[in-house]
Design a binder for these strands. Structure first.
Length: 268
DNA sequence: TATAATGTTAGACT
DNA sequence: AAGTCTAACATTAT
């Protein structure tokens, strides 16, 4: 569900609301999450996004690493729950998998499909960073990374080892904006074409962050509000509809097991 | 009932 | 050997 703009939205909202708070208790509700230590007593230090990962750093050297995968959400409910935190008075949000009680409110990890992952690790030893498209990736860097890649350029944009944060919605939208056919091989793009991609990446992702993400069905921000970026989508999920740029017809194909939407008439 | 869904990855295949 | 492709994960909605 969440790509870079959605994860960035959650990080900014979380950083703004739980700064300096202490964890009173943590509860794991889904055994699929594996072993997670009790987090009571730790104080929130800050949040950072790493691609689509959310790193929550605690005072004392622990980091809680979340990945929301397809249907994971975070929801923050202001107001302190009373010990022993059993929430008899307030029903749990459906599909709650992890609950972290802070001094000023409660953070829920909600995840119907149960693909989300949680790990708690020492803050030292963080993985090496991968280029982040929000900071801007130069056309020459794209060209160099794609030099030997024969996969479709759309799949390349979604390769988290190369570029961190772009997912299925924004990959289609970026290539439409850049006027590039998603079936092209990554290595076939010229420097000039990567320049168009670079521009599109910045514009599309920054606007999506400003809109607090894209709500197609179930994405909500930290406070349960819908995003607004769905109004800006030009191709995603629009197969059979009219291209807003050239009047052609938007098509859907499959690439790497995922849907790709594009306009064959104006994406070359 | 079959298909698709905002993600990742292990293992099969080139 | 290294890059690419596919199936699998668990669940809901159309």
């Amino acid at each position: 569900m969440p790509e870079l703009p959605e994860v960035e939205t959650l990080c900014r909202q979380l950083d703004g609301i739980v700064k300096g708070e202490k964890i009173l208790r943590s509860e794991v509700l889904d055994s699929l999450l594996g072993e997670i230590p009790q987090l009571a007593g730790h104080e929130f230090l800050g949040v950072a996004r790493r691609g689509k990962f959310i790193d929550i750093t605690l005072v004392g050297g622990l980091t809680v690493i979340l990945h929301l995968r397809m249907t994971g959400r975070l929801f923050y409910q202001p107001g302190q729950a009373a010990p022993p935190f059993t929430n008899i008075d307030r029903p749990l949000p459906a599909y709650s998998r992890l609950i972290i009680h802070f001094t000023g409110g409660t953070l829920f990890l909600i995840d119907p499909r149960r693909f989300a992952t949680v790990a708690v690790r020492p803050s030292s030893g963080a993985p090496a960073p991968v280029p982040d498209p929000l900071k801007g990736i130069a056309a020459r860097v794209f060209l160099e990374m794609a030099r030997t890649r024969t996969i479709p350029v759309k799949s390349f944009l979604m390769d988290q080892r190369a570029i961190a944060g772009i997912g299925n919605i924004y990959a289609s939208e970026i290539l439409f904006s850049a006027g590039i056919d998603p079936r092209r091989t990554a290595k076939s793009l010229t420097l000039g074409e990567w320049g168009k991609v670079k521009k599109a990446v910045g514009e599309i992702l920054r606007r999506a962050v400003a809109c607090r993400g894209t709500t197609i069905s179930d994405w909500r921000d930290l406070f349960g509000k819908m995003g607004k970026n769905q109004d800006n989508l030009k191709v995603y999920s629009r197969h059979g509809e009219v291209c807003r740029r050239c009047g052609g017809t938007i098509e859907r194909i499959k690439q790497g097991g995922r849907g790709t939407w594009f306009c064959p008439a104006c994406q070359k």
